[in-house]
Design a protein around this nucleic acid. Structure first.
Lengths: 210, 210
DNA sequence: GTTCGCATTGGACGAAGGTCCCATATTCTT
DNA sequence: AAGAATATGGGACCTTCGTCCAATGCGAAC
């Protein structure tokens, strides 16, 4: 495990804010990288470790809220803390609804920002872990052949080999082989574990026909 | 299925707001009940159907935000829409962080309130369904004897009857009996289903000793 | 055109799961 | 004290699962 210092990105069109916030973050032990616009931020390199984004709402071209929506659902989306000089309540509500960690009106005290950044980084770590886990599972799922995947769906639906065989129009023997390979490829020691892995991987159990 | 009209509770110390909002809601086809204070609201009867709470932030004694925290985690918590005449951004952020559906500054247009209430009721229905499902599962879990519960925890961990028997210091036969009763009481047709039920019911699989 | 991955199946066998009827001991409630 | 719920088993039996070794057919890739 390479220890990676948390990274805080700052996007604000005001140079003095970038400078002061950047200094504050570094003095607090974080890595900091500042950007003057949303587009500039979008050209950044991916950062592997935990991190968050301190984002001004009012920005030229693409606004902070627009950037938030652009980033939402991205594979490497970061927790966002908004800062705003002329924000209003509907703006802050929209930001929070879209998953922002907090929304700080300017001027704010350094302590408030640091506290919220702590929250954001904690969330980032959690999300990163979750993403890592599901990515691992997805990779395993991707190694399954189409037929194996069909069998998996039926197995996690709780069906017997015999039933699966009938539904797929093959022999029970064949199902057993596929099933064995599924267990191996998914690295599951038991059906219980297979069910949990499949659930996190988004596998839909084939409906049981009564 | 008894069709229940959605219920909207309104808590505001301003009588004119209670009156106008109440009228608006009824004209929109909702049931409405108004309260002048948080304490008064807390004395209300439980309402079984979908519903939400339109809550003023500034209230005598217990504030709207306090009431939100009091209600949070309650078995019958309702989605909350805040309305506020003198709210600020930190206030709205706090409300949203604690799960509010929205935060509307007064004055607001009727259409906005109705739109947000629609969201809130949809969330209410979803939460109600989720609560119903987990409650059903919990009831079944509660019918298990201590021993049966132990067996369940081991089964969903993917252990073999033999292993479970050793760990519990009983015969494999006994485990089979308990296991059978667990399947029956939990109304599960397969181990896969049992795993899913257990997960939603908060059952912790007993760790596997390698 | 040969090699590789995929899907398919056979036979055999042991391990595991599930269920029937039956029985005993303990504990707790009524 | 009687009865119910709980926990524990025996014996018998069948089903299901998993795995060993072995084989065939098919399409795609090299």
């Amino acid at each position: 495990m390479t220890e990676v210092a948390p990274m805080v990105f700052v996007v604000d069109d005001d140079p003095s804010v970038r400078k002061s916030v950047g200094r504050l973050l570094k003095s607090a032990g974080y890595q900091a990288e500042t950007f003057a616009s949303a587009r500039e931020f979008l050209r950044r390199d991916e950062y592997p470790g935990p991190g968050c984004l301190v984002l001004d709402v009012q920005l030229p071209e693409l606004s902070g809220l627009d950037l938030q929506q652009t980033l939402a659902g991205t594979a490497h989306s970061l927790p966002i803390i908004f800062i705003s000089g002329h924000g209003d309540i509907p703006m802050s509500v929209r930001a929070m609804k879209n998953g922002a960690v907090d929304f700080l009106p300017k001027p704010f005290v350094a302590q408030d920002l640091l506290r919220v950044i702590g929250e954001a980084l904690q969330r980032s770590r959690r999300e990163q872990n979750d993403r890592l886990e599901t990515a691992t599972i997805r990779k395993r799922l991707a190694r399954l052949t189409p037929r194996e995947y069909e069998v998996l769906c039926s197995v996690v639906a709780g069906k017997l080999n015999k039933q699966i065989a009938v539904e797929l129009g093959v022999g029970e023997k064949t199902v057993k082989v596929h099933r064995g390979r599924v267990m191996e490829k998914m690295d599951a020691d038991s059906v219980a574990e297979l069910v949990r892995l499949s659930e996190r991987g988004g596998v839909i159990p084939t409906p049981i026909r009564v």
